[in-house]
Computed example of a mutant assay.
Amino acid sequence: MGDLVSTLALSSSGMEAQARRLRHVTENIANADTPGYRRKTASFEMALHDAGAPAGQVTPGQVRLDPRALARVYDPGHPLADDTGHYDGSNVDLVIEIADAREAQRSYEANLRMFDQARQMSQSLLELLRR
């Protein structure tokens, strides 16, 4: 039964990590046209085993800003434009963000299926023990 509980903990940590990743992706997509916006990336770390977490459980790390250069946009009428008519755009690439969103969604679904399978197995085990 302990293995099933640790499987539930592992899959729930994976779902939480992917949900956080999806939140950052949606923030990036929403701010793709915001001047000066830097893309956020999510990192994950293995939870320390001695902290009571099952081996393999992930915890969210720090949110990092993408260090790539911001796009230079030419728009002389923009209030942020300099003397040459340029301003700093964002460094968000929508193609990358959509691919990241799909990957995070599929990973979330895989963790959800694992969680559901472990839940069904523990429920079946409890039914067998009741007999």
Rank of each mutant, 00 (worst) to 15 (best):
A32I: 10
R102S: 11
G14W: 04
P60F: 09
S124A: 10
S12E: 14
A104G: 07
V5D: 01
R102I: 13
D83P: 00
R68I: 00
A51N: 14
Y37Q: 04
H24S: 09
A69D: 15
L94E: 02
Q120P: 00
D116G: 06
P35S: 11
Q105P: 01
S43A: 10
T84E: 12
R106P: 01
G56I: 02
Q117V: 15
L22K: 05
P54C: 09
V25N: 01
V63W: 08
A118T: 05
Q120M: 12
A118C: 09
S43M: 09
E16L: 13
A69Y: 03
V63R: 08
Q57C: 07
Q62M: 13
P79S: 13
E97I: 01
H24T: 02
I29N: 06
F44P: 03
P67K: 01
E97K: 00
D82F: 02
S13T: 05
F44V: 02
L65E: 13
D100F: 02
L112Y: 10
R39N: 07
A71T: 13
V95N: 12
G14P: 01
R39F: 01
Q117T: 15
I98Y: 11
H49I: 06
L4V: 00
L126A: 06
V25L: 08
D100L: 03
I29Y: 07
S43K: 11
N91P: 06
T84W: 05
L22F: 11
M15D: 14
A19C: 01
P76M: 08
A55F: 10
A71V: 13
I98T: 07
L10H: 08
I96M: 13
S13L: 00
D33H: 07
M1Q: 08
R72S: 15
D88T: 00
A17D: 12
A101M: 15
P54E: 11
N91A: 03
E103G: 05
I96Q: 12
R23L: 04
G56W: 06
A99P: 02
A110F: 08
Y37W: 04
F44K: 04
D83M: 11
L129E: 11
H86G: 03
R113G: 04
A17K: 03
A47H: 12
S12H: 05
L94K: 02
R38S: 12
N31C: 04
P54D: 12
D3T: 09
H78M: 08
L70I: 01
V5K: 13
N28C: 08
L125G: 12
A104H: 06
L129K: 09
R131Q: 10
V25T: 10
D3I: 04
G2H: 05
A53N: 14
R113P: 01
T84N: 07
A81Q: 00
T41H: 10
V92C: 05
V5T: 09
S90Q: 14
R20P: 00
I96V: 09
Q57M: 15
S107H: 08
E127G: 05
K40G: 07
K40A: 12
S90W: 14
Y37C: 06
Y37D: 04
G2E: 11
E103A: 13
D82V: 02
R113E: 10
A42C: 05
P54S: 07
